[in-house]
C-alpha cells in the first residue's frame, strides 16, 4: 500500500505525517503524532472516546481517514488547556468528580466544549442528547452533566 503524505494543523500547530491510505485519523494521532489523549473504545463511532474537532466540527476520529486531514484543522484534548491553565470544563470535571476511570473523559470534554461553543446556555436535556454519543460506564453520567452545566455557568459569567 502506497503511503500518503499529509500536511495539516493540529492544535494550532502545523503538522505533517505519512500514513497508509486506509489508516484512521485516530491511529495517526495516536501512533504517528504521539497524541494518545483520544482513545479507541470501539473503532465504529459508537462510543465517542476518540472525539476530536475537524475544521470546527465534532467528529469521531476513528471514522476519519488520516488522508482526509490534508489542509484542515484538527483539535484534540491535548489542546484544550492553555499551558498550565485548565479550561473551565476541565476544572469543572475535577471539581464535580465527573470522572472515575477517565478513559471517556477526553472525548467528553472535546464534545462538551463543542456544545458550549455553539450553545453557551444549554438545558440539561440538551446536554444529555448532545453527549449521547459519548459512552461512560463508570459515572452513570449524573456528575458529568452537572459538571458541564456548571462550567457553562462559569463561562457565561466570565
Amino acid at each position: 500500500m502506497k503511503t500518503i503524505h499529509v500536511s495539516t494543523t493540529v492544535n494550532g500547530d502545523a503538522a505533517e505525517f505519512i500514513c497508509g491510505p486506509d489508516e484512521s485519523l485516530l491511529d495517526v494521532l495516536r501512533n504517528r503524532l504521539g497524541l494518545t489523549g483520544a482513545k479507541e473504545g470501539c473503532g465504529t463511532g459508537d462510543c465517542g472516546a476518540c472525539s476530536v474537532m475537524l475544521d470546527g466540527r465534532l467528529v469521531c476520529s476513528c471514522l476519519v481517514l488520516g488522508a482526509e486531514a490534508e489542509g484542515v484543522t484538527v483539535d484534540t484534548i491535548e489542546g484544550l488547556a492553555e499551558g498550565d491553565h485548565l479550561h473551565p470544563l476541565q476544572q469543572s470535571f475535577i471539581d464535580h468528580a465527573a470522572l472515575q476511570c477517565g478513559v471517556c473523559t477526553p472525548g467528553i470534554l472535546v464534545a462538551a466544549k463543542a456544545l458550549l461553543d455553539r450553545n453557551p446556555d444549554p438545558t440539561e436535556t440538551e446536554v444529555r442528547y448532545w453527549l449521547a454519543g459519548n459512552l461512560c460506564r463508570c459515572t452513570g453520567y449524573d456528575k458529568i452533566i452537572h459538571a458541564v452545566m456548571d462550567a457553562a455557568k462559569t463561562m457565561r459569567a466570565a
Partner: peptide, 9 residues
Amino acid sequence: IGSTQVQGR
C-alpha cells in the same frame, strides 16, 4: 443517524 460526532460527518 448516530451521535453528534457522527452528525459532523
